[in-house]
């Protein structure tokens, strides 16, 4: 079975469509949505609608901090930009869609795989994984061999050896990586809708349980159109601009 790992779509329909199409060509059987379906982007309703449908057919989806904020209303700790986007997003979603977001689980465990938006030690605390030490902490908090997450907006692969060392790997798009059974692995799929590593192309990954092969992909999409929609929706100008630079 081949799973598409899609994180941080952030209501960017252009990027989302491009990744779904690419994943179809990769003959993906199922999807895992790793949180933050909404926030920042101009198309929350179609994105949530698609995912609701997909989850009804067996896809995995976990809660992200933006999904939570949209479902519950903005929290005090948010930046002004984020909180403005949250209010606008709430206004765009139907009650059933808000309810769907609010009911998303923090984590999903299937076989040897853990799906979570931010980290495994405190999924609701939304702390970022920024170092090997953080990753070690997350891997210590689960018995699953593979953790799939998002939140950081940059694709990355970490592995923990039996000797206890955590190593980081900067993935190369398109090369299949077998996740060997002697180690434990943490995969950050990058962001579909708002990549921040200087490359505007959408980022996602696939995981094939035949041989446990992980492959990262970068998918170019119409960033200008996505940015135009952000502006047209009256969302902060910077949210559109960053899409074109991938920062």
């Amino acid at each position: 079975m081949r799973m598409a790992l899609l994180a941080d779509v952030h209501a960017n329909l252009e990027a989302f469509r491009a990744c779904l199409e690419h994943a179809r060509e990769q003959r993906v059987d199922r999807y895992a949505f790793l949180g933050d379906l909404v926030g920042y982007g101009a198309d929350p309703a179609p994105v949530v609608e698609w995912v609701m449908h997909s989850v009804a057919q067996g896809s995995v989806a976990v809660l992200g901090n933006h999904d939570q904020a949209v479902a519950l209303g903005p929290s005090a700790s948010m930046t002004a930009e984020a909180s403005q986007a949250v209010k606008w997003t709430r206004s765009q979603l139907a009650a059933s869609q808000l309810a769907f977001l609010g009911a998303l689980p923090m984590t999903v465990e299937q076989g040897s795989c853990l799906y979570v938006h931010a980290n495994a030690w405190d999924p609701a605390g939304w702390e970022y994984l920024t170092s090997g030490q953080d990753v070690g902490r997350s891997l210590a908090a689960t018995r699953c061999r593979q953790t799939f997450c998002g939140h950081v907006h940059r694709p990355a692969l970490y592995h923990l050896s039996p000797a206890g060392t955590v190593s980081h790997f900067d993935p190369v798009a398109g090369t299949g990586i077998p996740l060997g059974s002697r180690r434990r692995w943490l995969v950050i799929a990058g962001s579909v809708g708002q990549p921040r590593d200087g490359l505007p192309a959408a980022s996602y990954a696939t995981f094939d349980d035949q041989g446990d092969v992980l492959t990262f992909f970068r998918v170019p999409y119409d960033t200008a159109e996505a940015a135009r929609k952000v502006r047209a929706a009256g969302l902060p100008e910077a949210l559109g601009r960053r899409l074109e630079a991938g920062v």
């Binding site: 050896s161 060392t165 190593s167």
Partner: peptide, 11 residues
């Protein structure tokens, strides 16, 4: 392998 994690490097 240039495009795969180097399991030996860090350990």
């Amino acid at each position: 392998h240039d495009h795969l994690p180097d399991l030996l490097a860090e350990q």
